[in-house]
Amino acid sequence: MSEVVKVFGGTALSEKDISSGKIFLTKDSLDCAYAWDTGVAINRYLAELKKGNIIATRCRKCKRIVLPPRLFCELCFIPVNDWVYVHDSGVINTFSICHVHWDASRVKAGEDPHLPAVIEIDGASPGMGIMHLLGEVKPAKIKIGMKVKAVWRPEAERTGSITDIKYFKPI
């Protein structure tokens, strides 16, 4: 390698190069917003969340009851049109205790860390998890395999969003 590759490109800049203003930077902001069509299956999922229910779909071929609900089975590749209610409880498949926000800024001292988890929902097929948050629990007490139950927002505050469930708490 050293016989044929003698020079490596890439000029490292230091914090000082930047702060001294020696290096020219052009700054820009995307400044754009989106609104997403919910689609057919998720539309119904959200409408049921608003009513305080979790609804899933079942594939008539592989019999899997899946979350989030979908209009086709990605394994059998056939249309799905069989809707079933599942429970609002489940088991923690895995979790994290996260000290940074979405934009990588640090959670401040005194602020609670985020507690994301994959929760296998009771009544759906084994392993069928959704990503959500945990609450009303000390981070150090969280264990994989713990049983949890949804804590819903009051009906009047629900908007038809995954956040209509505030979080899941241990039972």
Partner: peptide
Amino acid sequence: FPVKNSYTA
């Protein structure tokens, strides 16, 4: 989605 870019020349 308040993200920004900072480009070197």
